[in-house]
Structure formats: structure tokens, C-alpha cells
Design a protein around this nucleic acid. Sequence first.
DNA 1: CCATGGCTTCTTGCATACATGAAATCTATG
DNA 2: CATAGATTTCATGTATGCAAGAAGCCATGG
Lengths: 249, 249
Amino acid sequence: MQEAMENPVQNTGIEVPLLEKVRRQVINGRYGPGDLIPEIVLAEEFGVSRTPIREVLKQLQNEGLVEIRPRVGTFVREPTRREIVELFELKESLEGLAASLMARRGRVRELETLERNLEASDVAASEGNSQSYAELVHEFHWTLVRGADNRKLYETYERLMNQLAYHRIVVDTVTRPGRLKASDNEHHAVVEAIKRKDALDAEFTMRNHVRASSQAALAPTDYPRLTEAGALDNTEEHSPTVRSSPHGC
Amino acid sequence: MQEAMENPVQNTGIEVPLLEKVRRQVINGRYGPGDLIPEIVLAEEFGVSRTPIREVLKQLQNEGLVEIRPRVGTFVREPTRREIVELFELKESLEGLAASLMARRGRVRELETLERNLEASDVAASEGNSQSYAELVHEFHWTLVRGADNRKLYETYERLMNQLAYHRIVVDTVTRPGRLKASDNEHHAVVEAIKRKDALDAEFTMRNHVRASSQAALAPTDYPRLTEAGALDNTEEHSPTVRSSPHGC
DNA sequence: CCATGGCTTCTTGCATACATGAAATCTATG
DNA sequence: CATAGATTTCATGTATGCAAGAAGCCATGG
């Protein structure tokens, strides 16, 4: 009854590596927001015809990453600030649901993963290793959503995160003063509530955590960052290697 | 900044009427769960080539309504009971979020729509007109989600409802004894909380309401229905005209 | 009678050609 | 020099042809 969830990418019938490769090329490649993406260029680049490229682009449009203007062309979409806020509101609700569902499940494998994650996060937090911590944050949130054992929730979450992940608007807020340790403490509180099987507490602790990190991500960043690597990249340029975490902490 | 929301169907670049027509044909037409849907049949039926049909089918797969097995064919998907439960869990969370967001907005146009809906619902409930009430329930929930003024939430909700709407598993639970008036009362409570701008109360009142109607929809239906029209249709046959509400009450 | 092997058929997946329409450019005129 | 109009170009939208693979079927052997 419980199907495997090992494939995070929806089975679209499209050869998955192609979709993934086009995604990277489109978002992290030489195409910036507003740029036209000619189908034929991608087709030649990947050695296929326009047909599968069109399918991939339609999928990307469905994910909200590009906009296809009929008879005109496909353009990289620039999410508005309003959309970012909307996505964060949904993120808060969905992760709250995930925490609630996981709390009701009892001791499952994902709970142990979270506990190990906390240990590693404590180390990274005490060392101030924000790069390492950012990755652990990433794992924490995805483990939680996976631990909810609700495939539709997982797919919905994945869908929304795809819209947030590849845009430079959301940067690793973990580098902001104080946020790192606060985030770590909030993670602890969530896991504690889950261990107590207190679904309501788990949900609201998680929601508060997501809201806090979302606000940190959305707040203007006037003050200097704590790390030099991956400093705030608000210019229209886009770095080929994205160091920033795809979501807040 | 605030874009219009008048188009509930995502702009996919596909000629929208075609997508809609294929959806009906596929789900309410002669194709039942598990049936193969040959592209060429639809193509000839609608007087187009296979290419736009393929795009439509891919979109329907993305919505979860069909399954494309590579090199084999496209089949109408039968959602499992587990999936239904998962979708209801998400529905509860999303509609709770919608109520919460709407409560924070103050007096907006959609609130007046809800109030008019309640008046009409009271009449339908007192008359025991479950057909009329079912339509009002439908309008109530969609108005609430629209009133949240969060486009991403709206799109996500639409996406999930598409997966629930056209399957005969979810029937109008409004015809069950007691559920009709209970539902009406719950709607009143939600609107009251919104008018009081009590976001938390609005959210949980709505969540409780969704949970109650979801459980009613999922519960086994041993006892006779109160209406003769659109009686529980659990056979593999599917009526050409679907009378059942696409969601609970 | 049952099982197994090959064959036929059917369906999709991809490539390509052509039509359509929008945008940009070039030109001619006020 | 600016502007309006026509033309040219370019990218998409659609149709169609062909190949590959999977499922079903039939025949044959045990």
C-alpha cells in the first residue's frame, strides 16, 4: 500500500535527466529573468528535437518557472515579491501540517533522522559553520515533510519549493546575526513536540519557526553578512554556482 | 500588483477549451478507471492532430487524473483510498489557511458573497433541498479560497480539487442524515469568526468543518440516502451527468 | 491440455516540415 | 528628424511520418 517515495521528481513520462538538465540550464545557466529561451537552441544543445524540449518547457511553466507567451516565446519568469510572500504562507501551512502528521505517527525512521540531524546541527551551530548548517536545514525540512507520510503533501510541497528554490530572492538567511542559533533552538522544539506526540504543539512550533525564517528571508538586508561566500546576490547577474540555500532556516 | 484571478484554469499555452473538453471526455465520458485512452481517438474526435492531444494528456497526468505508461498508453487513473485521505488532509489545511487569511483581510467583497451564500443556504437547508445546498456548498468553499487573496493557494487548491472532483468516490455527503444542518451551522460559525477577524478561530472552525465533512464522505454508506437522485454510485459504471458534489459539505 | 516461443499489432516517442502570427526593422513621407 | 506603414524575420503551433517497444495472440511442442 505504501509506495516508495525515492523519486522526488514526478514521473512525467519525460526522460527525467533531460527535465533536470533543462531546469539547470534555464535557471542557473545563461538565462536570466525575462530572457527569451528559444526552443531550438535548447534542442540543439541537448541533441534532441524541439518536441521533447517543448514538453519540458511546458512542465517548467506548470511549475511556475517560465512563462510561455503564445506565438511569441518562452521567457524566464521573475517571481514577484507578492508571489514569494504567498509561497511562504503556503510553506508555513504545509510544514505545519507535516509536523502535525508526523507527531501522530509515533517513532518512525524519519524521527531518528531528525534527531541525528539535530546533533549535527548543534555542532555546526556552535562552530558557526553556516554553510554546513544550511545543508542540514535543507535536510531537516525535507525529512519532516517526508516523515508526514503523505505523498500528496510531499508532491505539493516539492512543487512550491521548486518555485522558490531557484530564485535568488530567497537566500540563506542563516547567515544573519542570531538567526542561526535561534533556528537551531526552534528545530529542537519541533522535534521535542513530535517526540511527545503533541500534534498541535508540533504544528504551531513549526509554523512559528517557518514564519520567523520567512520573515528573515524577506527582510531587507542592509547590514553586512557574516560570511563572505555566497553574499547577497541581488543584482541581475546570476552566479553559475548557487551557494545560497533554497529556503530560509 | 494584484493581478486578476478571473481565470481559474492555469494558462498553459494550450487552447483552454480543448483542455477542458478533453478533461470532460476523459473523466465523465466513456472512459472509466483503468481504461486506455488512445491519443488518436481523441485527436480524431476533436479534429486535431495528436500533438496538442499529447500536451493535454500530459497536463492531465500532471494533475493526477491519468497515468501515462511509456510506450504503452495513457490510462484513467483510479485514486486509491489512501490518496483520497491524503487529499482531504491537505484540503483541511489549505481551507483552514484560507479562512485564516480571509479573517485578517477585513471586509472584502468575498465576505459579502459568503453572507449572501449563508442566507441562501439557510433556505435550502430548511427546505431540505440538498441539490441546491450542494451547489451553495461548492460556492462557499471556492469563495473562501478566493477571498484569501493568495493566488498560489488558489492554484494549489484548484490542483488538488481537480484530483478529487471528477472521481465518484467523493459523493455528496450532504444527503446524509443530520449532515446538512450541521454543515450549515459550521459555515455560519466560520463566517462569524471571519467577521470578528479572529483568524485562529476561523482557521480551526473551518478545519473542524472540513474534517467533519471529509469523514462523512469517507465513511461507509450502509444506510439509505435521503434523496433518490444521484444516489450512491459505487459501481464501475459512471453516469454521464454527474450530480454529486465534487466535495463534501 | 498446458506452456513456451515467436510474431503481429497497436500505441507511444521523436523528428521534421510547414503554416501562422507577432515583433522588429527598414523605408518613405510629413 | 520623427512617425506611420509595410515588409521581413523569427519563433512558436500543428500536422505527419517513422521507428521503437510493449502487450496480446497464435501456433507448436511437450
